[in-house]
Amino acid sequence: MNFATFCFIVFGVLLNAVAQLLLKAGARNIGEIHITLANIFSVGWRVATQIPIIGGLACYVLSVVLWIIALSRVDVSVAYPMLSLGYVVTALGAWYLFGEALSMQRLMAILVILVGVAWLART
């Protein structure tokens, strides 16, 4: 895998992680969502008009474009496991931005992911 392809993969994964964090921020703005037939449109409108949610969806679109470019250059069996980097970025971002817990077990799992991705990138 060359450097440019690696960059497409990494930036695609990072955009995907940012999308998750923006969606979480938008969901926090709304509060716990309970959908019924009576409120489906009002809840849908509240969700659709949240700036963080709109930003998260835009990040998803951009990440898909980068992902398609990456898949045109590298085997899916190499690219797909790189998506696990998203778990790392999202977990760290959720800890930093939202105060979510990062236990020792989660940190060790993140380390395993990082070692696996580094190993895979060298093939």
Rank of each mutant, 00 (worst) to 15 (best):
5 T>I: 10
5 T>A: 14
6 F>Y: 09
8 F>K: 03
9 I>K: 05
10 V>Q: 06
12 G>T: 10
12 G>S: 11
13 V>N: 12
15 L>T: 08
16 N>F: 07
17 A>R: 13
17 A>Q: 11
17 A>E: 09
18 V>Q: 07
18 V>G: 01
19 A>R: 09
19 A>G: 13
21 L>V: 06
21 L>R: 07
23 L>P: 02
24 K>G: 08
24 K>N: 08
25 A>T: 09
26 G>I: 03
28 R>G: 02
29 N>A: 10
30 I>A: 05
30 I>N: 08
31 G>D: 04
32 E>Y: 07
32 E>G: 10
33 I>E: 01
33 I>T: 02
34 H>E: 07
35 I>F: 09
35 I>N: 03
37 L>D: 05
38 A>R: 06
41 F>Y: 09
42 S>C: 05
44 G>Q: 07
44 G>H: 06
45 W>L: 06
45 W>R: 10
45 W>S: 05
46 R>A: 14
47 V>A: 01
48 A>R: 03
50 Q>Y: 01
51 I>E: 06
51 I>A: 04
51 I>L: 14
52 P>R: 03
54 I>V: 11
54 I>D: 01
56 G>K: 08
56 G>I: 08
56 G>P: 08
60 Y>L: 11
60 Y>R: 03
61 V>K: 01
62 L>T: 07
64 V>D: 08
65 V>P: 01
66 L>T: 00
67 W>A: 00
69 I>T: 09
69 I>H: 02
70 A>Q: 07
71 L>I: 05
71 L>G: 04
72 S>T: 13
73 R>F: 00
74 V>T: 14
77 S>G: 15
77 S>T: 14
78 V>G: 00
79 A>L: 15
80 Y>H: 05
80 Y>N: 02
82 M>E: 02
82 M>I: 08
83 L>F: 12
85 L>S: 02
85 L>F: 15
85 L>M: 15
86 G>C: 08
88 V>F: 14
89 V>H: 11
90 T>L: 04
90 T>E: 05
93 G>Q: 13
94 A>V: 12
94 A>K: 12
95 W>T: 06
